[in-house]
Design a protein around this nucleic acid. Structure first.
Lengths: 368, 368
DNA sequence: TCCCCGCCAGCAAACGCTTTCTAAAAATGG
DNA sequence: CCATTTTTAGAAAGCGTTTGCTGGCGGGGA
């Protein structure tokens, strides 16, 4: 016996509301609300009656109304730079699972490195009233930060962010994995190792490059400037870079890439030449996307676990959103990285395999 | 002079509301609402005054409140089966751009072929009050449909869906592209062509297989049952299938795959054998994901434009949501597919290249 | 027996907006 | 110059929740 609502003609048939439940359970809507939210001041007997009706009529609380009155939408914003880079879907998936398991919804946005898109993305997130935002673009547009910061918004960044009360930072230990990669190559006998960076305005890209430089000097190798090329974290960028590398008078025997997509581009670029991987050139990626192990040859790469990343991001966000979260005070969250050896790295050409064999590290166990 | 709001202590500082604007513009909130929504019954002079204040104070309407009163959230649901399959991020990106450009937000969900996840996904979408859902899983779980259908929800499916007033269907013309692929292979001289399907409970997977059978008989070729293998649209599935194929007493000279990921798995599986692509076996994919052209060798594949798909999906959804949409009555939306020839197909081994050269079609122009 | 206090329903006031209804003012016509 | 119509601003009623406050009721202590 639904009395027809007044509203505009083109609204969908109204869902069952808290009032309907209250009526059928012969209690007030306040009691229904409290029962549904499992507030302890409601008599267990009554609560049971309410829940029974809830199940019977299929009552689902209206999130919009909830958000309106409580001021919290239970939506987490997740900003990535490029959803079509396979690393991010993996991250998104992990993030989403975790968020949903903890009662949050997630709103995803991809900036495509475009300030205008980013701008509108922030506006949209603000407008939709997200409770906090994880900026996983691995590089922060300053203005983006300012916009959010001034709202006293819970924020999570990767690598670096301003020192502010509402801001938490996921610190990725690039040094660790990249050192492993460099040592692996050096142990194989490589002396000339090139590095293809990401877009250098991203801090994370700079951090990876710096970690490479540091690791190289640690093992006593020098890096001539022409062995560091700027890529852009895409396959196309990797291709362009490797084309420049093979045009070099003195060819490096190994190439380390700032991410896996770049490495895939390198593989592709090399396919067009007479150089074979790993026989002539060894290639190492970064990220360990699922695809890496399916490349030809399977890609040796530094694993940055997106599960770790997602877990840290969600927890850090909640810590910022919920005032009495146990880790509310923790500002830095550490993310480890590790080398995964596959088939795209070998002794440099001309090295005696017999000699090298001993030097080749065992295949890592965590090969996913 | 903000009077402090009552609410719970841990809410964020209240954003500027319609009331603040009304006060500063010395009009009623009704006028502000109308001005902001560009309703024509408001005096242009007044509207200008309102907009000025809106800009000054940075007023952003609260979407939750809007949704609550209007009953429409301006959120579109988008359900995909596997966000980590690169085809879907591309689709998501297109869909999102279009939706945002048309004033909608999008809520993304990935089922991972898991009924429990799907179930909860639907519930979440209902709860968040999405205005309509595009189910782009390329295969529909029946119960999923029922849940949504009974709410008289605007729905968009791919390939097939129940004949109901609120339901629109995107019909992908698999036959077209697959015929082109088969004819391309036949023209090259292939007689033994295998097919690796997707998960056969997906209608789209069945449709692709059937299109293959049909095209084969059209060119007068027979398909022995052992040349049709069931895959699962993942790289792993492609690998497993190709392992079975190379174990066959009589090897086919070409393999057509139900999607690109499968083809990548095939390439990878073949890498471990002595068979080379395309010299010994030609491989054709389906979807034309961005990655396809970066495979070794670049993958010949059937392009299903996710731009076309996304465009159709968004329009079809809006047609279902907005009662006076021009295409409100259109139920079927057609999506074309086309072959893109790259390097993973060649004359079968032993064929005279000189002879074959003439038969090889020109590289398709639409190579992206 | 009476009073005080704790427990726990229910009332009602928000939350920020849209939209209908009302009425004042302006424009038009006779 | 008054009556009638048209225009347009404002008042107010929701939309479906949460939550502070009120008060009825029962129990325990004086």
């Amino acid at each position: 016996m639904n009395k027809p609502r007044k509203g505009s003609s083109n609204r969908r048939p109204a869902a069952v509301s808290i009032r309907d439940v209250a009526r059928r359970a012969r209690v007030s809507i306040a009691t229904v609300s409290r029962a549904v939210n499992r507030i302890s001041t409601v008599d267990p007997e009554l609560a049971k009656r309410v829940w029974k009706v809830v199940d019977e009529v299929g009552y689902v609380p209206n999130t919009q109304a909830r958000a309106l009155v409580s001021g919290r939408s239970r939506i987490l914003g997740l900003i990535v730079s490029e959803i079509t880079n396979p690393f991010f879907p993996e991250l998104v998936q992990e993030f989403e699972s975790l968020a949903v398991a903890q009662g949050y919804e997630v709103m995803i946005g991809s900036t495509s490195y475009d300030p205008a898109r980013t701008e509108s993305l922030i506006r949209r997130m603000l407008q939709r009233g997200v409770d906090g935002v994880a900026v996983m673009t691995f590089g922060i547009e300053e203005e983006l930060v300012k916009k959010l910061v001034e709202r006293e918004f819970p924020l999570v960044f990767v690598d670096a962010g301003p020192e502010l009360p509402n801001i938490r930072v996921l610190k990725v230990n690039y040094g660790e994995g990249i050192r492993e990669a460099v040592q692996h190559l050096a142990a194989l006998g490589h002396r000339q190792i090139a590095f293809i960076t990401g877009p250098l305005r991203l801090r994370s890209a700079m951090a990876r490059r710096d970690a490479f430089r540091k690791s190289m000097s640690e093992v006593g190798l020098t890096v001539p400037p022409q062995h560091i090329l700027e890529g852009n974290h895409t396959m196309e960028g990797g291709m362009t870079a490797i084309e420049q590398i093979v045009a070099l008078p003195e060819l490096p025997t190994a190439v380390l890439c700032s991410n896996d997509m770049t490495a895939i581009g390198v593989l592709h670029g090399l396919y067009a030449t007479t150089y074979k991987v790993p026989r002539d050139i060894s290639v190492v990626g970064f990220d360990d996307i699922h695809l890496a192990q399916f490349m030809l040859p399977p890609l040796t790469t530094v694993q940055m676990s997106c599960k770790d990343l997602a877990t840290a991001a969600v927890h850090a966000l909640r810590a910022g959103i919920e005032p009495d979260h146990p880790k509310a005070a923790q500002k830095d969250w550490l993310i480890p990285t590790h080398l995964v050896v596959r088939k795209s790295t070998e002794f440099p050409r001309g090295t005696l395999p017999a000699l090298g064999k001993a030097a080749r590290p065992r295949r890592t166990a965590r090969t996913r």
